[in-house]
Design a protein around this nucleic acid. Sequence first.
DNA 1: CGCATCATTGATTTGGCTCAAATACCGTGG
DNA 2: CCACGGTATTTGAGCCAAATCAATGATGCG
Lengths: 251, 251
Amino acid sequence: MTIDTFKGTAASLSLDKLRRSCGYCAMHDVCLPAGLDGGDLERLDSTVRERRPLDRGSALFHQGDSFTALYVVRSGSLKSYVEGSDGDMQILGFHLPGEIMGVGGLTNDHYPSSVEALERSSICELPYPQLQAVSASMPALHHQLIRVISHEIVSEQAHMVMMGKQQAQRRVAIFLRSLADRYGRLSRDPTALTLPMSRGDIANYLGLVIETVSRLFSRMEADGILAVNRKSVRILRRDLLDALCGGETES
Amino acid sequence: MTIDTFKGTAASLSLDKLRRSCGYCAMHDVCLPAGLDGGDLERLDSTVRERRPLDRGSALFHQGDSFTALYVVRSGSLKSYVEGSDGDMQILGFHLPGEIMGVGGLTNDHYPSSVEALERSSICELPYPQLQAVSASMPALHHQLIRVISHEIVSEQAHMVMMGKQQAQRRVAIFLRSLADRYGRLSRDPTALTLPMSRGDIANYLGLVIETVSRLFSRMEADGILAVNRKSVRILRRDLLDALCGGETES
DNA sequence: CGCATCATTGATTTGGCTCAAATACCGTGG
DNA sequence: CCACGGTATTTGAGCCAAATCAATGATGCG
């Protein structure tokens, strides 16, 4: 392997570590380290731990667990949600590679929501004490952390706009567009979506019922906007999709 | 004045300044400086500027303005909202004394929402470059800032739960309870609310129409839960109000 | 005092929910 | 490989909570 030529010794372990490092991660520039340079990147790397992959349906943490770390999706996808005492749940968001999870826990000592894998997913763990220690002497990381947290706020606000008064079809359209754009940023084909979440999850997230989502998928397919097949959705007419989204700005 | 005994000279200016300082501010322990000790507090103070009061209806900043500062309500109240290109607006939140505004701007260089005074209000301005400089050498402030931003996320999530699938009456009940609790934290009477915002603002914020809010106020009055008179709302039966809110946790 | 805005109340409509059923899909075990 | 049971999804019919439409009443301001 060519990598060995400049990082010669102690083969498998260090190679493995390198492969897992932020600098070589495919998410590099859409993730927390975006904008950090070499030295800083290494110091951040030293605080990142990789957890063993989560299987579909298993939890990264639960609402009420004590806050210990922030997490970033490395691969796969997850959902975060809160559960009321009466057992109803509300999905707050879906997390794709490069996206951060657990920021709600920073303000208390407990996570205010749960996060669960939608498919087998790998996760980078950033134990908060270490992250704090490192960022104390690294203004760029510190600022980047604040930016990432603030970005969460803006995304949530976009979601609130959608939940506020938009029609069901527009909600679905905005959801698909947002997903397509996030796929695009990950250099995946933004017209060929593979929805990792169930119809029920989508409906819950959008404040609709499952039947409505299903009907709207069918309708948009009949209108030639989508080709829907189970979990795979192909966007045939992005222009029409955008039209359905109306004048709203997207996340 | 007793204050002069330990901060003797240069009468009016420094007294004025003192009166405006975080240490003497009534919001002290519900605001950004909560938990900071003497020395740190003074250094924070040096970055705080007080803007001249905003009149009802005037804007603190507009969506799209370039980001320069965070703001904290000192007195009065404000609303933040976004406007779609088609002119529709969605209110994202109301801001009472001690609460922070503008955090959405941290992730971009522009504020993603507008903020407007609901009544004559005074505001503390925290120019971000200075705040950044000061917090770089003050881990406690830095952490506090992150906590405050994270708190915004959690509040928004609570709002999303409400917007998700709650009945209209529950939304109104949760809104009133949240306001009452925030009044309480400000040591105001949490049973005697003075709503600084219009019915239209409330309706918009809750994802309802104005008529529905009006009807529900009337209904809750008929049920003996509230006494409503224009902008003043007295909570007569907090227990019944809580019951309407259901098993949901509040912000 | 008169105008303009805000709020309340009533009548009617409707988008999305609920209830109900059929269909497709998936993993499992024979 | 195929049959089977369970789950997820789609589709249909009717209903309901809240929206819309329409006045009327109250408040505050110039």
